[in-house]
């Protein structure tokens, strides 16, 4: 038990350090570019996305749909605001619904990002609020419901088909900061049937999942600055 608590604390420390370094990186880049790259600030784009969720309950894979918009702050800094709804079948014994609403900061490695016909790789980190519902088909097993907050980071690419339109592929790991709803497959001793058991673990948990997102985005205009 002590070892587990120690590992969790170590993970949190490493995570916080990682986010702090990322934040410094973003801030320094932003301040360095604010003066000379004013023409990029305020670009607004809107898009739709599909997300595949992996490594959740009982190793099941879920699929989701949602929307997003982006507000660009500087040449190499963009922000993405998203909402997703994900449904996961858990081995035919139950299901899980996830709803996410959140935002991320995108940092472009390239000095000249989002050019027509070019691939733009980026690093992303952010935060979201989420709702999770886990339901077992087995009678008597209580449904698990949770509202929580989460942080996510990952890597992605944009491919600009035209100056204003891009297709993006993103892979990010999302860690939920809250109590864990743990679902496990058990066998009923009386009937011999497998069923899904749901337990809610008290205390802080770092349960998470890998999200892979495909999206299409169109730049609609500028919210501020010169057009």
């Amino acid at each position: 038990m002590k070892v587990k608590v120690y590992k969790v604390r170590k993970f949190i420390k490493l995570g916080l350090t990682f986010f702090f370094i990322s934040f410094l990186l973003f801030t320094s880049t932003l301040s360095a570019q604010t003066k000379k790259d004013t023409s990029y600030g305020g670009m607004f784009s809107f898009g739709m996305r599909n997300t595949i969720s992996a490594f959740t309950d009982a190793q099941s894979i879920g699929m989701g749909a949602g929307g997003e918009f982006r507000i660009r702050l500087a040449k190499q800094i963009n922000t993405e605001w998203f909402a997703d709804y994900i449904a996961t079948d858990i081995q035919g014994l139950g299901y899980r619904h996830d709803a996410h609403i959140g935002w991320s900061v995108l940092f472009y490695f390239s000095n000249n990002p989002m050019q027509k016909g070019k691939v733009t790789p980026y690093f992303l980190a952010g935060h979201c609020f989420d709702y999770t519902e886990v339901v077992s088909e087995w009678p008597g097993v209580q449904t698990g419901v949770r509202w929580s907050s989460a942080v996510q980071c990952g890597f992605g690419i944009h491919y600009n088909i035209t100056k204003f339109f891009d297709i993006s592929l993103l892979s990010q790991y999302m860690v939920h900061l809250g109590t864990d709803i743990n679902s496990s497959i058990a066998t009923d001793p009386a009937t011999g049937y497998n069923y899904m058991n749901i337990t809610r673990q008290s205390g802080f948990s770092l349960e998470g999942h890998l999200l892979t997102t495909l999206s299409v985005n169109y730049q609609l205009g500028k919210l501020w600055g010169k057009k």
């Binding site: 699929m63 449904a87 996961t88 079948d89 035919g92 139950g94 299901y95 619904h97 339901v135 088909e137």
Partner: peptide, 11 residues
């Protein structure tokens, strides 16, 4: 179209 009907009945 790719999708799955996920509910308490048969998926």
């Amino acid at each position: 179209t790719i999708g799955e009907h996920v509910t308490t009945g048969d998926e």
